[in-house]
Amino acid sequence: MEFEPWQITDDYLGGGGHHTYIESGSYTEDSAGQIAHDTVHEWRHDLGEVIGALLRAGLRIAAVEELPTMDWPAFPDLVPCRQGWTLPPEAPRIPLNFAVVATRPD
């Protein structure tokens, strides 16, 4: 089976501004209509921005890992897996999330 790629509509790289939309639910099951203040503001921050901010704050980066899983089905093609949600097996492997371990110097 051929994987049909997503249509990319927003910049990944930082500096693209914010995205505002109305959403009366969340990623949790049966939450539609449960949120009273439903205007959502999101800012995109690429990996370089996040790591740079941690370094500028004086933290030491101990580890960085890109992950093929997410905690919720943020995209329609994600399938459940042991760690949460991931792309189907026929899809190219791309990072969906990342983890950073940072420590404050003594």
Rank of each mutant, 00 (worst) to 15 (best):
L59S: 00
D106T: 10
N97E: 07
G84Y: 09
H19Q: 12
G16F: 02
S24W: 02
W85S: 00
N97T: 08
E4W: 02
W72R: 14
G14E: 08
A91P: 03
A91F: 03
H19Y: 15
D30P: 02
D106C: 07
Y12K: 06
M1I: 12
T103E: 14
S24D: 13
P5D: 05
Q34C: 10
H41N: 08
W72E: 05
I8S: 10
W6N: 13
G48H: 09
G16L: 01
E42A: 06
T103Q: 11
D11S: 14
L47V: 12
T20M: 12
M1A: 15
P89R: 06
A74M: 13
T28E: 14
G25W: 00
D10R: 15
A57Y: 03
G58P: 04
R56G: 06
A62V: 10
H41D: 05
Y21M: 07
G17Y: 07
I35C: 03
A91D: 02
L78N: 00
R44G: 12
D30Y: 10
H45I: 03
P92T: 06
L47K: 12
Q34A: 12
E42D: 02
Q83N: 08
P95I: 05
E42V: 09
G58R: 09
Y12T: 00
F98M: 12
I35D: 01
W72A: 15
E49C: 06
G52C: 01
T9F: 03
H45A: 09
E42N: 03
D11N: 12
L54H: 04
G17K: 06
I35L: 09
A74Q: 14
P73G: 04
A62G: 11
S26G: 14
E2V: 14
T9Q: 11
G84F: 07
A36D: 11
P89F: 01
E42Y: 04
G14Y: 05
Q7D: 09
G14V: 05
E65H: 13
N97W: 09
A36L: 14
V64T: 11
A99W: 08
A74L: 15
T20S: 13
G17C: 04
I51E: 09
R60S: 12
